[in-house]
């Protein structure tokens, strides 16, 4: 299984054209620390659906202090990548020394001078970032098959969300073994009968 097919369905009573944000937590970092808005579903009206993929693999990339961005390299658990100065300039390359943990991916700054930023991407969208890594430092990434989903306003894909925004996203969906599923949103709406937004998994297929 290379990717999980997810299908967001809006069965809410929302009348505010709310945005739905999906993100993952880098479990190598503490919960409630910064997270990146991986996917933001916009303008998905009542009874509309929005299919999307969650690939099992993710990619890593680095940028240096000169504003150069390396290509995105597919990373597997236990791998490490070194940013170093080659004869052509700064490049990111799979390291011969694996990550400390077999469940994590590391991006190391092996430059002699200059900080780097390390980024993770899933399905081409920014998933996590670690900035200001000085020479000798490393970023550590670990993702479990879980996504967080919630209704948040004024967030765009790739935005770094602080703990105040993250605390508004309270639903964790566990995707272990799932090949496809619908994520159904209910609740919301105007007036006294309005209820809080809720999410459920339906039409689950497993491998």
């Amino acid at each position: 299984m290379n990717a999980i097919k997810l299908n967001f369905i809006n069965r809410s009573n929302d009348m505010n054209n709310s945005n739905v944000v999906i993100f993952q937590q880098n479990v190598a970092e503490n919960f409630d620390e910064l997270a990146v808005a991986w996917k933001v579903i916009q303008n998905c009206g009542r009874l509309d659906n929005h299919p999307f993929l969650y690939s099992m693999n993710f990619q890593v990339s680095a940028s240096d202090s000169y504003g150069n961005y390396t290509p995105q390299l597919t990373a597997y658990d236990g791998q490490a990548f070194d940013m170093f100065k080659s004869t052509s300039g700064d490049i990111l390359q799979l390291s011969t020394t694996p990550a400390t943990s077999p469940y994590q991916v590391e991006v190391r700054n092996e430059l002699s001078l200059g900080a780097i930023n390390a980024s993770c991407f899933r399905d081409g969208k920014l998933l996590a970032v670690k900035t200001g890594l000085a020479p000798g430092q490393k970023a550590v990434f670990e993702f479990r098959p879980r996504i967080y989903i919630g209704v948040v306003s004024q967030v765009e894909e790739g935005d770094i969300m602080n703990s105040a925004i993250i605390s508004q996203v309270n639903t964790e969906i566990n995707l272990l073994g799932i090949t496809s599923a619908d994520i159904v949103m209910t609740g919301g709406g105007p007036g006294t009968s309005s209820t809080e937004f809720s999410f459920a998994l339906e039409n689950i297929n497993k491998g």
């Binding site: 964790e172 566990n174 272990l176 809720s198 999410f199």
Partner: peptide
């Protein structure tokens, strides 16, 4: 589960 003011929801498959 969680604080009354900040309930968290858990949905899905967690163990095989």
């Amino acid at each position: 589960y969680g604080l009354e003011s900040m309930k968290r929801e858990e949905i899905g498959y967690i163990m095989r």
